[in-house]
Every structure is written in structure tokens, then in C-alpha cells.
Amino acid sequence: MAHKRFAQIPMSKRMRELCKEEDFAFLKSQPDQDQSSEESKLQESQTQKKLERDHRQEERQLNEQERQREIEEQKKVQCHAEKEEKWKSHVAELAVKREAIHAKLHRLREFRDFQKKVLLQDLDPGSTNETINHLLMRL
């Protein structure tokens, strides 16, 4: 296309070629007046199909994001449940250990009382409680 209006503007050959290409692309994109209504309907249907495809793709992406979000929430809930279960088992384990320690303490006290009784019987009746405690500590 001849650029008579812009002939005075200095441009490189490459720039002139680009302008020509853009002009031709613009002219090709313009609907011809000779174009039949069928072709325009075809283009409209293709455009409509493309819009529908784009819309479906957006819906799929949103659904995928929602599914990923749900999976993450499930993982968080599952992780929380696992931690809670571990905590409960830990507390139960500590309770069992505490009971075992209390039972052991009770047996030791009973044994101490038994030792005290035996020492009282073996020793003379006049010995004091402090002497017995001292002997027990040495044992």
C-alpha cells in the first residue's frame, strides 16, 4: 500500500515493510462486503465455541482449585486428628507409668515398715525411733 500521506516521514525499509504487513493484516481482518452471511455465521459460531471452551476451561480450573483446597483441608484435619490421637496415647502412657510408680512407692513403704518392725523386734525395746531410722538409712 502506498503511503502518500506519510511519504515525507523518514522511515527505514524495514519499518515500511512492517507498516505494510500491519495494514494487510488489518484489511484482512475487516469483513469483506462480498462475504456471505453463512461465512459470518460460521465465524460467529466459531467465536461462540471458543468462548464456551474458554468458559469450560475456567470452570475446570476453578473446580480443580476447589478440589485442591478440599484435599488440603482434609490433610489438615487428618493431621490434627493424628496429633490428637498421639497426645491421648501419650497421656494414657503417662497415667500408666504414674500408677506403676505409685504402686512401687507403696510397696517400698510397706517394705520399710516391715523392716522397721523386724528391727524393733530384734533390738532392745529401749532403742529410740531415731536409732532405727539411722540403721534403716544405712541399709
Rank of each mutant, 00 (worst) to 15 (best):
Q33T: 12
T47Y: 06
E73S: 10
H90W: 04
E22M: 07
G126H: 14
R56M: 05
D124K: 10
A25T: 03
P125S: 13
R69K: 13
I71E: 06
R109E: 07
S29P: 02
K86M: 09
V96D: 02
S12E: 02
E17M: 03
Q115G: 00
S36G: 14
L27Y: 12
Q46D: 08
Q35H: 00
L94S: 08
K50S: 09
L105D: 04
T131Q: 14
Q8Y: 11
K117E: 13
F114Y: 15
P125I: 09
R56K: 11
K41W: 12
M11L: 15
Q78Y: 00
F26W: 13
R16A: 13
I101G: 00
S89Y: 05
S127V: 15
R109I: 01
E21F: 01
H102C: 05
E99S: 08
L94Q: 15
E72A: 15
E64S: 06
A92H: 05
L135I: 15
E44Y: 09
S40D: 06
E82G: 03
I132V: 15
E64K: 12
K116C: 06
Q121C: 10
L135H: 04
L139H: 06
A81G: 01
Q46L: 10
Q115T: 01
M11Q: 06
R14N: 12
P125D: 09
D122V: 14
M11C: 11
H106Q: 08
H102K: 11
S89R: 15
N133A: 15
E73I: 13
D54G: 03
K97D: 05
A100W: 00
L139K: 12
K83F: 03
V91A: 08
L42V: 09
Q46A: 07
E84A: 15
E73W: 08
Q46N: 12
K41R: 12
E22R: 14
K88T: 06
T47I: 02
L27T: 11
R112Y: 06
L42D: 08
E52A: 08
K4Y: 09
W87M: 10
M11A: 09
